[in-house]
Design a protein around this nucleic acid. Sequence first.
DNA 1: TGAACGACTTGGGCACAGCCCC
DNA 2: GGGGCTGTGCCCAAGTCGTTCA
Length: 679
Amino acid sequence: SDKPKKENGYVRYKTKKKKQGASHNCTYLMHSSPAVKSEPEEDNGFYPSPKHNKSSKREHDVEECEYKPKKVKVEHDKKAKKRKHDYEDDEEEPKKKTKDQKSTDGKKVKKEEDEKWKWWEEERSTDGSKWRFLEHNGPVFAPSYEPLPDKVKFFYDGKHMKLSPPAEEVATFFAKMLDHEYSTKDIFRKNFFKDWRKEMTSEEKSKITDLNKCNFSQMNDYFKAQSEARKQMTKEEKRKIKEENERLLQEYGFCIMDNHKERIGNFRIEPPGLFRGRGDHPKMGMLKRRIRPEDIIINCSKDSKQPKPPPGKKWKEVRHDNKVTWLASWTENIQGSIKYIMLNPSSRIKGEKDWQKYETARRLKKCVDRLRTQYRDDWKSKEMRIRQRAVALYFIDKLALRAGNEKEEGETADTVGCCSLRVEHIQLYPKMDEQEFVVEFDFLGKDSIRYYNKIPVEKRVFKNLQLFLENKQPEDDLFDRLNTSILNKHLQELMDGLTAKVFRTYNASITLQQQLKELTTSDDSIPAKILSYNRANRAVAILCNHQRAPPKTFEKSMQNLQTKIDEKQIQLSTARKQLKAAKADHKASHDDKSKKTVEVKRKAVQRIEEQLMKLQVQATDREENKQIALGTSKLNYLDPRISVAWCKKYAIPIEKIYNKTQREKFAWAIDMAEKDYVF
DNA sequence: TGAACGACTTGGGCACAGCCCC
DNA sequence: GGGGCTGTGCCCAAGTCGTTCA
């Protein structure tokens, strides 16, 4: 029997939660489960197909000669030397930079030169330091508050009331959000009002006691008018603003890191405002306070020119920690977490990490079969904790679920991942729609995005889930003997650097590679091939549950596209008739002029056919993409070398797949991947 | 040992620049 | 030249995971 011997007083691992856990469960399963026939590996599109597993000689060769930092951390030097060697055959090793890195002359490093900088061909330090030299100008602060003009009035209980500047500023935050659904939510209003009162003078506090009696409509109208005025600005005014932004970017948007001018990702400090959490966030509406220089910790080299705080102000601290990558940080007041200013994804420091991430996923590819065999075995373990770990890992692998850290109740929206799933999030169906052992998942994941899925699982998984659910309440943890720390510790033992999230990267990338192989036809036109690429990308986005709200203009834009298609079809039929007539004319006359006309008409038909096909492909793509966000997987989960190789193999310009920013981020991959690259 | 902290990646929404079409 | 649409980049919230603290 699958029934365990029950044991009380087990240790709970979920310590952060205040909720009571399941009343009891067992630590050891004293009776082994009946032998369950091992089911064949299902081909659900997530696992590599048997064909894929048997990597061909060619694939093997490619992998052997590639840029593969097997142990990225410890063999960085060797890797770099090997790469250097790899490049010697076909490419000149980049010239060594000779600038004095300790000099602020580094600023003079030309942008053009840096755009071409191939950091991936250089050796990196192995001592854990992230940089040797770092110089920057500090962050840009939010503009200070400008009081409203006198004509813009605030009313309380129907009477005009002049607010003190601090109270007025916070009131404007709310006034700006009147048209947003947020401002109607009880929690939002309650939190806002509580924090707003803290900014009021004692007189204001005694008068303003009910948010429902506050009238912000004049403020709201004022900001709408301002926004409208911005849209109506003359070209000259717009140009001036653009120039000012460019000046700020040039002054604060770059830093010098190890001799190279690097773009900073977010050099502006977040302005004050009302916190807008996602989903049912208990803190929505709270006041995000203004960040001042006294709140900022600056990180830079000891020997660099330190950023100057605004006149009369001081930084909280200036430190020189080269074990971290951030340039400045501050603590925000809502969650008490630290916010950072860091480099742009195109920077060396981010690129290296990204590259390393995909190399770890590729290492997983090599041992994933062994891991799968092991967790299947573990489904039969005598220990409950091992069974839970194995079933959770199966979900993470098969469904690309996130790890699911514990969260403090009442601090954030109630969302879960794999390890934090609760009984109420799954339903078991021994039989459903002709399928056996179906598990229905329904929960809110990251960003309160709903995850809903019904999947048939292996019998042993199903039986285990039934066991985990025994004697539990809906709000109890499904995996009460497991948390992400335990899971990751286990994974670390199985493969160096392996964590739950590596499975997501691995499954995403391998799915893209398989789908591209399956969907691409050499004879297809470029738009058709791009449709195939987007479909492969889409398969990954669906796997990772990357959803988006359908764009507000979706229906209209589809309609427009359909109108264009209809018009094009009419155009095509006219062109075809003309071609037919021209052919008949030529048949009768047999002269050169009519022959030429036939050619012209034939070309016209061809051109219109192509245009029509392009529009139809576009419509299909857009329709299929209605609620799917491709960006996240493209940017974070898909080894860019797969896409680059695909482009090279099918002669697709890389610009069709990656826009400018993406090309900058993936410069390393674009440079190194050849058409025969295999993930 | 578990909680808290810190550093970093991942994520969807939205404003707006810029392009296209009339 | 103007209006509308779309893609891009920014914004900043919300995750993951390793380290430090008590």
